[in-house]
Design a protein around this nucleic acid. Sequence first.
DNA 1: TAATATTGCTTGCATTTTGAAAGTAAATAT
DNA 2: ATATTTACTTTCAAAATGCAAGCAATATTA
Lengths: 139, 139
Amino acid sequence: MKTNEKRSDCPISSSLDIFGDKWSLLIVRDLMLHKTRTYGDFTKAKEKIATNILANRLQVLEEQGIIIKLPYPDNKVKGLYKLSKKGVDLIPAVIEIALWGSSHLSDTDESSPFIEEVKKNKVKFLKKIMDKLMADDVA
Amino acid sequence: MKTNEKRSDCPISSSLDIFGDKWSLLIVRDLMLHKTRTYGDFTKAKEKIATNILANRLQVLEEQGIIIKLPYPDNKVKGLYKLSKKGVDLIPAVIEIALWGSSHLSDTDESSPFIEEVKKNKVKFLKKIMDKLMADDVA
DNA sequence: TAATATTGCTTGCATTTTGAAAGTAAATAT
DNA sequence: ATATTTACTTTCAAAATGCAAGCAATATTA
């Protein structure tokens, strides 16, 4: 993976240079909805990411300062991944993608609890979830 | 390209199944900023998309109902691509990505005229650009 | 304490996607 | 009538993806 090549100075293009793939934003999604996750938690997500891809995406997202890896309390094998401030700031984009999918794609999980809440009051939901994720010492 | 395989019922995952790559949203970007574009216009964008990839993405986006191909007036060779309603509805997501890139990535084109306008008043900008794109008979 | 299981990866290899370059057919311009 | 433009398609090498197995460092269980 060549993560250091920018195709242009366009902020959209440069963003997609980092997370323009089918997996990166799903990692952000899982961290957004669960606050922290271990490596094993990610592998248990229903989309079934391959472990080599997961390891690569976690590394890229960490290099880019979007996620942070912390030690797991009282366990030297496990690690805890969480969103950084830069990662939390990606949530509005992820939410817009979720809203689009939920209103334009069939057979998507419309009844997902967070989608309903977002539709009811997007600003309130965003504030709530971003505040929660930023609550503890985020870099 | 297998565009018909859904990894899960999650609206984020299903959205990324369609446009989770480095090019699709750049096509949406160009249509958002220029209203309509020909095939040749897309190839002239600064990111230099390969023509085989462009042809494939245009086909997928059309199949998915995100873009519409219209005949070019008085010319049987050219075509005109434009966003459908479903495509216009992707603009909020694209804008959030642009805002994120613009505030978190260095060397992005901060001074791009539309980014400044979005930062000044996002809701107003969105309304203006979406209204404009929806003005003429959008499917 | 010794054997077993868990965790977070890495490796090998086949398949799929991407990307650069060249090619092509239809239509338009000269 | 010839040259050029337009919108692709084809070819082939390189890179990314995905599946399965492997592995070393803990942690748990007997």
